[in-house]
C-alpha cells in the first residue's frame, strides 16, 4: 500500500496532459495515469478527513461508494459543490482534476467485472435464494442479518467472494460482527453488534430484531471471533454450485446508467 501511494505522488505531473471535460460520464474512468494523478490529488486534498486509505474517519468511508449506488457524476458534483451545512467544502479544483479524483475513488472502491464462463447464473440465483437470502438482500429481497449484496460485484473480486463463502470469518465487516450477550440470569443472546459504547450495546438478534441492552444488566459481552455466517465448504456447496453462485453474484453490478 505504501508503494502504491508513493507511485501516485510521484506521478502527479501527468494531470496536466488531461483535458477538462464536464459531462455525465467520467472521461478518466479506468485511465491508469489519471487514477495515479487522482490518487496524488486525493492524498493532498481529501485524505485528512477521509483517511489515506479512503476508509473514512472523521469523514465518510469512500470505498463504499461502489455499493452506495452513487454514480461518478454524483460524486463529481459533491466534490465540486461540497455539502451545504457540513464540513465538506466546495472544491476550487479544475474539472479534470476532480474527474481524476473520482476515477481514483472508483479504482479504490470498486473491482473490475470478473469472467462469468464457469457457472450458470440462473442456477446460481436459485442457490442464492435457498442458501443466502435468509440473511442477505438483493434489490430489497432477502434478510437483514448480513450485508446487502445488490452491488457486491462492484466491490469484491471473484477470489474475495470465494473466500467470503468458504471462510467468512477471515474478514467481517463492521456492523455484522457476531456478539453473544450473557444476561444476569445466564441467558445467552446471540446477534450481530450494530453499535456499542461504555454503557450499552445495540444488536440485531437472531430473529433480525433490533435490540438495545444496558451493560449493567449483562453479565458478559462476548465479541465472537467467528462470523455469524456459516462457512460453506465443498461438502455443502460443491464446486459446480459455487461456480453457479459466483456467476450470479457477478451479475450484481450496477452500471453508471442504472445507478441513482
Amino acid at each position: 500500500m505504501v508503494h502504491r501511494w508513493l507511485i501516485s505522488i510521484m506521478s502527479i505531473g501527468c494531470i496536466g496532459v488531461l483535458s477538462a471535460n464536464a459531462q455525465q460520464a467520467n472521461p478518466y474512468e479506468g485511465d491508469a495515469a489519471a487514477i495515479r494523478a487522482g490518487g496524488a490529488l486525493y492524498a493532498r486534498r481529501c485524505a485528512a478527513c477521509h483517511g489515506a486509505d479512503a476508509k473514512g474517519t472523521p469523514g465518510p468511508d469512500l470505498t463504499q461508494l461502489g455499493t452506495s449506488g452513487a454514480n461518478s457524476k454524483r460524486v463529481f458534483d459533491v466534490v465540486q459543490r461540497g455539502i451545504e451545512g457540513s464540513i465538506m467544502p466546495p472544491s476550487l479544483a479544475a474539472d479534470n482534476e476532480i474527474w481524476a479524483i473520482v476515477a481514483y475513488l472508483r479504482s479504490v472502491g470498486t473491482v473490475p467485472p470478473f469472467a462469468n464462463d464457469r457457472g450458470d447464473a440462473a442456477r446460481g440465483r436459485r442457490i442464492f435464494a435457498s442458501v443466502c437470502a435468509r440473511c442477505h438482500r438483493v434489490q430489497e429481497q432477502g434478510g437483514a442479518m448480513g450485508p446487502d449484496l445488490s452491488r457486491i460485484a462492484m466491490v469484491r473480486s471473484r477470489e474475495a467472494l470465494v473466500q467470503a463463502i468458504r471462510d467468512p470469518s477471515a474478514s467481517v465487516e463492521r456492523g455484522y460482527r457476531a456478539v453473544t450477550l450473557v444476561t444476569k440470569n445466564g441467558e445467552r443472546i446471540q446477534g450481530v453488534a450494530k453499535n456499542e459504547d461504555a454503557f450499552s450495546i445495540q444488536i440485531m438478534n437472531a430473529d433480525a430484531e433490533l435490540k438495545g441492552y444496558s451493560k449493567v444488566d449483562l453479565e458478559q459481552v462476548i465479541h465472537e471471533s467467528q462470523s455469524p455466517m456459516p462457512a460453506h465448504g465443498s461438502s455443502d456447496l460443491r464446486r459446480r454450485e459455487l461456480d453457479d453462485l459466483l456467476a450470479y453474484l457477478g451479475t450484481l453490478r450496477a452500471t453508471d446508467d442504472a445507478e441513482r
Binding site: A40, A43, R45, A52
Partner: peptide
Amino acid sequence: AAFLADAPEFVPGQQTTGGVVWIDR
C-alpha cells in the same frame, strides 16, 4: 498510524500539510 511525507506546493490560502497519515485499521 504511519506518516507518509510529500513535498507540498506553497499557495497562499491553501493547506500545506505535506503528506498523508496512514491509519492502521
